[in-house]
Amino acid sequence: MRQYLNQVTTIVWKDFVTEFKTRELFSSMFIFALLVIVIFIFSIDLSIVKANQVGPGILWVAFLFAGTLGLNRSFMLEKENGCLEGLILTPADRTAIYFGKMLSNLVFLLIMEAFILPLFMIFFNVDLIAHLGPLLLVIFLGTVGFCAIGTLLSSLSSNLKTREIMLPILLYPLIVPVVIGAVRLTGQLLAGETLGSMMNWVGLILAFDIIYIGVSIITIDHILEE
C-alpha cells in the first residue's frame, strides 16, 4: 500500500515539476476561465437579472471549459515521446497511474478555481465570503466528479487523432448530473440557503463522484492497454 501511494504521489510530483517549469497548463486554464466570465459579464444586464441566478451557471461553465483544456493537456503530456508506454512498463498498478493523473488534474483545477472565485465575486458583485465554507465544499465535490470521469476519458481520447474534439463530446453528457447539482447548490447558497437544507443535491454529487471513480478503477486497465 505504501508503494502504491508513493507511485501516486510520484506522478503528482512529476506533473507539478513539469507545470512549474512550463506554466502551460495553469496559465491557459486561468485565462480561458477568466475570458468566459468577462464575456458573460458584458453580455448580461445585471440590472435585469439577479447575479445569484445567472452567476452559478456562468461560474461552472467557466470551470468546465477551462478544466477541459487541462484534461486534454494532461494525457497529451504522457503521449509525447511515448511516456505513457514508459509509465505502463513500470510495475505500478494502472489504478495508481489513474489516481496520480486524477489528483494532478484536481489540484491544478482547484488552484485555478481559487484564483477565479475572487474575480467572479468582484465582477458579479456577489458576497461569497458569507457562504465560503459550504461553497468550497460544493466546488470541491463538483471538481472531484469532473476530474474523476474527465481523467478516465482523457486517457481514452488521448489515443485518438481528434482527441481535442472527442473529449468534450464524451465528457459533457456524462458530467451533466454533477454540473446540475453543483449549479443548483451554488445558486441556493448565494441566495442565502444553508447546505443542510440541500443535502439531497450534495448526496447526488457525492454518489456520482463515487460512481465515476468506481467505473474508472474497473475500466482503466483495459483503456491503458493498447
Binding site: T18, G82, G86
Partner: peptide, 11 residues
C-alpha cells in the same frame, strides 16, 4: 527500449 524515448521533454 522502444522507438520513443519515454522521457519527459521538460524534465
Amino acid at each position: 527500449i522502444s522507438h520513443t524515448s519515454c522521457l519527459y521533454a521538460d524534465l
